[in-house]
Nucleic acid binder design. Structure first.
Lengths: 158, 158
DNA sequence: CTTGCTGCAAAAGTTTTGCACACGT
DNA sequence: ACGTGTGCAAAACTTTTGCAGCAAG
């Protein structure tokens, strides 16, 4: 195994981003490095504000504006992907390593579980072929009630 | 054929909503009737603001606030479903009749194509079973480049 | 050095809410 | 009549942007 854990990705990803920025005539600043670093530490989906808070707690100072601006570049560099599961806020996730295709969203607790569903690829390909689409990314989102929420009796019946 | 075209749904849906409201001690107002009517006329996904604009053009006066408030009730009544495909705005769609499970979103033109994918049900069930989830709704969203956009040469390669 | 970048605060956009009055049941 | 609804405008909240000074290439 050449690079199976989580650490080794950081360095190459940094190069990827740097190369992307250079290609666009943009600069690789410490702020961008720090943001990329925080993003790479994320295992699942995350929000812009979450990054801001965590970075502040760790003393890695950045402004809200810079976070949003950098997230945009990371999207363009295809290092992260948008995950739209919440109408109030955009979620992101790393595109590399694992790109889980399925999300179980508990409508009671808002908790998000990421799951794998290899069969989706075939469906995606079939649909895209039928419509002449060139697929970029995809996801299956399932909303429902988690066992925890059901157990806690989030009552809905009067 | 008892109710195969699109018209007949309106009346029962009206009853469904009315019954739902009554069950919650809520009222069936003309505004809510008008909004439901506009919603039922939608074949695909729609946005809150779209409803507002269209209803105003047709002289069916409603306030933004009432639209949003009513959409919430329609969601609770399970008459409509949220479709989260755009980070800037929530989309909705009718839950009844056809609930397309798949969406092809063109990242160039923003156009949304709704597609069917019956195989998804089995996947949903499997995932939910594995996690003890009680599914409510689900969807597959595929982002990519539509043939039209590709043809128009939305160039990305320098 | 030149050009882009940061932080701040204000702006923009969608969705929510407080209030006074009006209406469905 | 009571309790809910409506419209309006302001508030709330996420995301974007203008600007003055600063830093990367």
């Amino acid at each position: 195994m050449t690079h199976s854990s989580d650490e080794p990705l950081t360095v190459p990803m940094c190069s990827v981003f740097r190369r992307f920025l250079k290609g666009q005539g943009l600069k690789f600043t410490p702020e961008r490095a720090r943001i990329l670093d925080s993003v790479l530490s994320k295992l699942g989906v995350f929000e812009a504000d979450e990054l801001l808070t965590e970075m502040r707690q760790e003393g890695r100072r950045v402004s809200k504006a810079t976070i949003y601006r950098t997230l945009k570049h990371l999207l363009e560099a295809k290092i992260i992907t948008e995950v739209l599961i919440d109408p109030k806020q955009t979620h992101y996730q790393l595109s590399v390593g694992h790109e889980p295709k399925g999300y179980l969203v508990c409508v009671e607790t808002q908790k998000i579980i990421e799951v794998d569903a290899p069969e989706l690829e075939a469906i995606r390909d079939r649909i895209c072929r039928e419509h002449g689409f060139e697929p970029a990314s995809y996801r299956l989102v399932i909303y429902g009630v988690s066992p925890e929420a059901a157990a806690q009796g989030h009552d809905q019946e009067a």
